[in-house]
Amino acid sequence: MGYLASMRIWRGNSADGQLEEHKVEVGDGEVVLDVIHRLQATQTPDLAVRWNCKAGKCGSCSVEINGKPRLMCMTRMNTFAEDETVTVTPLRAFPVIKDLVTDVSFNYQKAREIPAFKGPENLKPGEYRMAQVDVQRSQEFRKCIECFLCQDTCHVIRDHEENKPQFAGPRFFIRIAELDMHPLDQLNRTKAAQEEHGLGMCNITKCCTDVCPEHIKITDNAIIPMKERVVDKKYDPLVWLGNTISRRKSD
């Protein structure tokens, strides 16, 4: 056990920065975050890193490793060859603060723009009754740990800064889907998804699903079903006609 790994770490701030190479000891079964911590404790005490639980549950240690958005705590060193240089950079869709830490406040702004859950007024606490089959679609989306890797990888904003104001991003599409599928939510969120939150900007290239550490099927289970619901509301004359004639609510 134990070898010296070559780590290339981006260091800098919003003005400038560069990749710096370090040799760091790696132990058995270690993940990238262990190696970064060793680097911090032995060579670069002021290396800025955001992390928290180190168990893949809080979604803090999001970076890009060899160009791919990943969690440092869930990327094992034995997935790289011992002679391979491992490159770690901050997320590239958000402004950098220092070293591996980025400003992810974009996501918190977007969170505020999604109307919250609105329960039925006639039910008091303790009177909610929901079937397991009705909650489990939304439960999948509530597994989200808000690591924002999906937001980072989404080319709509990663490659087009100017789209940020009108695009909520995959994390918030699953939030909208979660609420739209919630058996007791009282709001209809479909139109707003398209008109205010930019669902139509998504071209379903599925990178969000690819990077999700919780393996949430963001595209197949949230974005596409929401796109289909948007079609019901906005683009499908037959469904529109049917709904108008029978005045049936989408149940």
Binding site: G200, N203, V211
Partner: peptide, 28 residues
């Protein structure tokens, strides 16, 4: 759609690979 947006339109070609286009409006 995923396949040809990626393969032909390069929007994006692969995850975290910057696309060549200046503007992007998706399916709007």
């Amino acid at each position: 759609r995923k396949t040809y947006y990626r393969a032909f339109w390069m929007s994006p070609s692969a995850c975290a690979v910057a696309e060549p286009h200046k503007k992007y409006t998706g399916e709007t």
